[in-house]
Amino acid sequence: MKKPNDLILKTVTKVISFIIILFSLHLFFAGHYEPGGGFIGGLMTAAALVLLLLAYDMKTVNTILPFNYKIMTALGLLIAVLTSAGALLFNVPFLTHAYDYFELPLLGETSLHTAVLFDIGVYLVVIGITMTIIQTIGESE
């Protein structure tokens, strides 16, 4: 296989992919009030990782980010289910969320939600499955 000259791609990717990941995190946390959320955040992060995969090869990316995406998927599902089931402990129906306002250092008064935990589950699942799919297909070639 001939090696294409992808110096520009690699250089740009180094910068861009982290910007995308940061942006995706912003999207994720902003999700409750502005457009965004677990799905979009997860997809955006996955897209950044795909970009890395395009620029570098599978091996390099694996050494930089040694995640097992299948476990990440399972972990996400677990978090989502546990958060939902946690409501049962307080004798309210499955999936009831709670929130309250807290005074946090640096951020000031912030509202904290259990819904965010659920969304973290969604976020992890989305990254996990997208990367599992891409990786499996990529490796099979």
């Binding site: 902003a30 999700g31 409750h32 009030y33 502005e34 457009p35 965004g36 959320g37 677990g38 799905f39 989502a80 939902s84 499955f94 999936l95 969320h97 929130y99 509202s111 939600h113 819904a115 659920f118 969304d119 969604v122």
Partner: peptide, 19 residues
């Protein structure tokens, strides 16, 4: 739900089962 983005609130809270 103390949220502003209705779509996301529906997804994670009102209709969480779907998600």
């Amino acid at each position: 739900a103390a949220g502003g983005n209705m779509v996301n609130v529906i997804l994670v809270d009102f209709r969480g089962f779907d998600t």
